[in-house]
């Protein structure tokens, strides 16, 4: 579980614009409110799909707004 979360955080650190201090985001904090824009989200979700072998439908994107949300989705769909 913690490895998955660390991998998610690694993806965020690699894909999100460097002007967003993403390493300081809490697991239950909104990534949108933290400043992650729609393009960076596309990049993050693409890497998550490829890394974890999951498919994230467009209809799910709005529901995946925290690291906890993403972790739960991966665990349920992996």
């Amino acid at each position: 579980m913690s490895n998955i979360k660390e991998d998610i955080r690694k993806i965020f650190r690699a894909e999100v614009d460097k002007r967003v201090n993403i390493q300081e985001i809490k697991d239950d904090e909104s990534i949108t409110e933290f400043g992650v824009d729609s393009l960076d989200k596309s990049s993050v979700f693409l890497e998550i799909e490829d890394h974890f072998g999951v498919e994230i439908p467009d209809t799910e994107i709005e529901n995946l707004d925290t690291i906890d949300d993403i972790l739960k989705f991966i665990n349920e769909n992996k």
Binding site: S38, L39, F45, L46, D58, I61
Partner: peptide, 12 residues
């Protein structure tokens, strides 16, 4: 245009 769909296509 589905921006995410086009991005995923191009990036992959």
């Amino acid at each position: 245009m589905n921006g995410r769909g086009i991005f995923n296509f191009a990036a992959r």
